[in-house]
C-alpha cells in the first residue's frame, strides 16, 4: 500500500500525489503525475479519451495501486465519489432512498440530501426507472451524505442533455461553496467547466500542462491536443465569468471565490 497520511504541514492539502505511474503490461497509462488537491478548490482533469484520467482517479481513491509514486492523504479524509457508470440489474428491487441508505445514512438525512440536489421527487422510485440526470443527482446526494472533504466526480454529465449539464455544474459549484470541500472533476465539457475551475490538469498519460484555466488554455500542448477552437471557446467564456445563466436564460451573478 503506497497510501500514507500527510503530515499536518498545510492543513488545506487533502491529497498530495507525487510521481504517480501506472503500467498495464509494460504500457504506461500514467507517467509520473503530480497532483495536489486543496480544500475549497475545484480541480478539473481534462484530456483525450484513453489519456489515463479515470486511472488517475482510481489511484487517488485507492481502487488501484500505482506501479510507482505515492498518494498521501490528510488524516481522516472523507471522500464522496460519483462514479461515471452505474448499472443495477432489473432483478434487484431497490428504490432511490434505499440506494442512498446503503451508504449508512439515516432516513431524515437522505430526504434532506435528495432535496438539496433537486431529486426529492424520485425518492420512492425504483433506481432502474429514473433518468440519467436524476441518477447523477442521486449519486451526488449519496456522495454528499458522507459529508465529504473531497468530492470526486468522474464525468458527472455523461448521458445528460445540455440543459441538465449546465444545471449539474451549477449544482456542483454551489455544493463546493456551501460545504467548502475540494472537488476533483473529470470532464469533457471544456468550455463549461473551465469557467468555474480553479485548477486545470491536462493529461495525456503524462501531465501536458497544469495551472489556472487561462494559463492552460494558452499552453501549446493544450492547443495541440484540443485545437485552437477550444481555446477560443474558453476565451469567450472567461470574459463572461462574472455571471451565469439559468435554464430560463436569466442572468445570475457568480460569486467570485477564486484567489
Amino acid at each position: 500500500m503506497n497510501m500514507t497520511t500527510l503530515a499536518a504541514t498545510d492543513p488545506a492539502v487533502l491529497i498530495d500525489a507525487r510521481g504517480l505511474t501506472k503500467r498495464y503490461g509494460g504500457q504506461a497509462a500514467l507517467d509520473a503525475v503530480d497532483l495536489t488537491l486543496r480544500r475549497g478548490e475545484l480541480t478539473t482533469l481534462i484530456g483525450p479519451n484513453g489519456a489515463g484520467k479515470t486511472t488517475l482517479v482510481r489511484l487517488l481513491l485507492g481502487l488501484e495501486q500505482p506501479s510507482a509514486g505515492t498518494v498521501r492523504t490528510a488524516e481522516g479524509l472523507r471522500i464522496g465519489y460519483v462514479p461515471q457508470r452505474i448499472h443495477v440489474d432489473d432483478a434487484l428491487p431497490i428504490t432511490v432512498r434505499r440506494f442512498l441508505a446503503l451508504g449508512g445514512a439515516p432516513r431524515e438525512a437522505i430526504t434532506e440530501a435528495l432535496r438539496e440536489v433537486g431529486a426529492a421527487h424520485v425518492m420512492h422510485k425504483p433506481l432502474q426507472t429514473i433518468s440519467g440526470g436524476e441518477m447523477r443527482r442521486a449519486l451526488l446526494a449519496r456522495a454528499l451524505l458522507r459529508n465529504p472533504d473531497l468530492l470526486v466526480l468522474d464525468e458527472p454529465t455523461a448521458g445528460v442533455d445540455l440543459n441538465g449539464q449546465a444545471e449539474l455544474y451549477a449544482l456542483i459549484n454551489a455544493v463546493r461553496r456551501e460545504k467548502n470541500c475540494a472537488v476533483l472533476l473529470i470532464s469533457h465539457d471544456l468550455h463549461v467547466v473551465m469557467a468555474a475551475t480553479d485548477h486545470v490538469l491536462c493529461l495525456n498519460h503524462h501531465v501536458c500542462c497544469s495551472g489556472s484555466p487561462d494559463a492552460v488554455s494558452e499552453h501549446p500542448e493544450y492547443l495541440a491536443l484540443f485545437g485552437p477552437k477550444a481555446a477560443q471557446t474558453h476565451a469567450v467564456y472567461t470574459h463572461h465569468h462574472d455571471h451565469t445563466h439559468t435554464v430560463a436564460g436569466d442572468v445570475v451573478p457568480l460569486q467570485k471565490d477564486q484567489p
Binding site: L63, Y81, P83, I86, V88, L102, G103, G104, L127
Partner: peptide, 17 residues
Amino acid sequence: WRPLLSATVHEELAIVE
C-alpha cells in the same frame, strides 16, 4: 447482507465508502 448488497449495487462506490 448490507456490505454485500452495497457491493452488488456498485462495487467501487462500496470500496470508497
